[in-house]
Deep mutational scan, measured.
Amino acid sequence: MDALKSAGRALIRSPSLAKQSWGGGGRHRKLPENWTDTRETLLEGMLFSLKYLGMTLVEQPKGEELSAAAIKRIVATAKASGKKLQKVTLKVSPRGIILTDNLTNQLIENVSIYRISYCTADKMHDKVFAYIAQSQHNQSLECHAFLCTKRKMAQAVTLTVAQAFKVAFEFWQVSKEEKEKRDKASQEGGDVLGARQDCTPPLKSLVATGNLLDLEETAKAPLSTVSANTTNMDEVPRPQALSGSSVVWELDDGLDEAFSRLAQSRTNPQVLDTGLTAQDMHYAQCLSPVDWDKPDSSGTEQDDLFSF
């Protein structure tokens, strides 16, 4: 819950932080000083300027060897085509990944977070970031790969997607708890209302004896509580940590079903599988986004697919 609360507080303090972009060759504004600060901008989305290598189908939802083989196929196909790589912007948030063309600003792909089953910074092609997700059109699994400016960037994108998945799962947990509370309150309110109706004398007997209905007592009954809980029953509950912020979080049926399955089948359902080692994760978390744009010590960066 700490990640969720800190993310909400950060967004309320400075929503404009989320509009910064990394990996864009110096076009961005001043960047936060450390990885923790940038992680807090996830709610509205972190932007990464990358190059799209392509996509291939895979048979399993996750796995280092599986993704490595898929990336190898994608890279080989991209090299064989001889075409310049498409420059894209990857927007990562707890909602998922939005992929747009840098030149036309046209939407290429919009992947809900619950469809993503794996992401990684490839070991062999260490400047490549990739994720595996279920197609929104059918049940097939797709591996999408992107060329980053350097290994640090690939690791940073991988960690960002993993963190977005974690925050999304926490949102789901909060929403589920809130819905259970509202359902319980609604049920209790309905029981109270039913009890009051059972003990209320029939209207005919009131008229016969000349008694008047006590409207004041009726007004004191917990009807307002019942209506408050039943009027918006169809509205999706939102985490309290975000009250007053500009973010509107809505959970669709697909996300609810997917996270429910994860909660039942996995020990740590909030953790998205990645190909990063503990050492890689520690190294990337210690980086400032400013470091992502620094040239690798191995030599001059080449803006070309064939540089790796």
Rank of each mutant, 00 (worst) to 15 (best):
Ala3Leu: 07
Leu4Gln: 02
Leu4Gly: 02
Leu4Arg: 01
Leu4Ile: 05
Ser6Cys: 07
Ala7Val: 12
Gly8Gln: 08
Arg9Leu: 05
Ala10Phe: 12
Ala10Val: 13
Ile12Lys: 02
Arg13Ala: 12
Ser14Gly: 10
Lys19Ile: 05
Ser21Thr: 05
Gly23Ile: 05
Gly26Ile: 09
Gly26Glu: 11
His28Ala: 15
Lys30Met: 13
Lys30Trp: 14
Leu31Trp: 13
Pro32His: 15
Glu33Tyr: 03
Trp35Arg: 15
Asp37Thr: 09
Thr38Lys: 15
Thr41Ser: 15
Leu43Val: 09
Leu43Trp: 05
Glu44Pro: 13
Gly45Asp: 15
Gly45Lys: 00
Leu47Ile: 07
Leu47Lys: 08
Leu47Asn: 03
Phe48Ile: 05
Lys51Ala: 00
Met55Phe: 13
Leu57Ile: 13
Val58Lys: 14
Glu59Trp: 13
Pro61Val: 15
Pro61Ile: 02
Lys62Gln: 15
Lys62Ala: 11
Glu64Asn: 12
Glu64Tyr: 05
Glu65Val: 09
Glu65Gln: 09
Ala69Ile: 10
Ala69Met: 03
Ile71Ala: 08
Arg73Met: 15
Ile74Met: 12
Val75Gln: 09
Ala78Val: 13
Ala80Ile: 13
Ser81Leu: 14
Lys83Arg: 09
Lys83His: 02
Lys84Met: 13
Leu85Val: 12
Val88Gln: 04
Lys91Ala: 11
Pro94Ser: 10
Arg95Trp: 02
Gly96Gln: 11
Gly96Thr: 11
Ile98Arg: 06
Thr100Cys: 14
Asn102Leu: 04
Asn102Pro: 12
Leu103Arg: 15
Asn105Ala: 08
Gln106Gly: 05
Leu107Val: 10
Leu107Ser: 07
Ile108Leu: 07
Ile108Pro: 01
Ile113Ala: 00
Arg115Thr: 09
Tyr118Pro: 15
Cys119Asn: 07
Ala121Ile: 03
Asp122Arg: 12
Lys123Leu: 11
Phe129Ala: 09
Phe129Met: 06
Gln136Arg: 12
Gln136Met: 13
Asn138Thr: 15
Glu142Gln: 10
Glu142Trp: 12
Cys143Ala: 09
Cys143Gly: 15
His144Ile: 13
His144Pro: 13
His144Ala: 13
Phe146Glu: 05
Phe146Gly: 09
Leu147Tyr: 12
Thr149Ile: 13
Lys150Arg: 07
Arg151Leu: 01
Met153Gly: 06
Gln155Lys: 11
Thr160His: 08
Val161Arg: 01
Ala162Pro: 00
Ala162His: 05
Ala162Glu: 02
Gln163Tyr: 00
Phe169Tyr: 12
Trp172Lys: 01
Val174Lys: 00
Val174Trp: 00
Glu177Met: 10
Glu177Ile: 01
Glu180Gln: 05
Glu180Gly: 14
Lys181Ser: 13
Lys181Trp: 15
Arg182Asn: 05
Arg182Gly: 11
Asp183Ile: 06
Asp183Lys: 11
Asp183Met: 04
Gln187Thr: 06
Asp191Arg: 14
Val192Phe: 10
Val192Gln: 08
Leu193Gly: 14
Gly194Pro: 05
Ala195Glu: 08
Ala195Lys: 13
Arg196Thr: 07
Arg196Pro: 13
Asp198Arg: 04
Cys199Lys: 13
Cys199Val: 03
Thr200Asn: 07
Ser205Met: 10
Leu206Met: 04
Val207Cys: 09
Val207Gly: 06
Ala208Leu: 00
Ala208Tyr: 00
Gly210Leu: 00
Gly210Ala: 04
Asn211Ile: 11
Asn211Cys: 09
Leu213Asn: 00
Asp214Glu: 10
Asp214Lys: 13
Glu216Lys: 09
Glu217Met: 13
Ala219Gln: 10
Lys220Thr: 00
Lys220Ala: 00
Ala221Phe: 07
Ala221Asn: 03
Ala221Leu: 01
Thr225Gly: 09
Val226Phe: 08
Ala228Gly: 07
Ala228Arg: 03
Asn229Asp: 10
Thr230Pro: 03
Thr231Phe: 03
Thr231Gln: 14
Thr231Trp: 07
Thr231Ile: 11
Met233Pro: 12
Glu235Tyr: 10
Glu235Gly: 10
Arg238Thr: 01
Ala241Lys: 13
Gly244Phe: 03
Ser246Thr: 07
Ser246Pro: 05
Trp249Ser: 13
Trp249Thr: 11
Leu251Glu: 08
Asp253His: 13
Leu255Ile: 08
Asp256His: 02
Asp256Ile: 05
Glu257Lys: 00
Ala258Pro: 04
Ala258Asn: 06
Arg261Gly: 13
Arg261Asn: 08
Ser265Met: 00
Ser265Ile: 00
Ser265Pro: 01
Ser265Asp: 07
Ser265Cys: 00
Arg266His: 01
Gln270Trp: 02
Gln270Lys: 04
Val271Glu: 03
Leu272Pro: 01
Leu272Trp: 02
Asp273Ser: 06
Thr274Pro: 02
Thr274Trp: 01
Gln279Phe: 03
Gln279Asn: 00
Met281Tyr: 07
Met281Trp: 01
Tyr283Val: 03
Tyr283Leu: 09
Tyr283Glu: 00
Ala284Trp: 01
Val290Asn: 00
Trp292His: 02
Trp292Gly: 01
Asp293His: 01
Asp293Leu: 00
Pro295Gly: 10
Pro295Asp: 06
Ser297Arg: 05
Ser298Pro: 03
Ser298Val: 07
Gly299Thr: 03
Gly299His: 00
Thr300Phe: 02
Asp304Glu: 15
Leu305Ala: 08
Leu305Ser: 08
Ser307Asp: 06
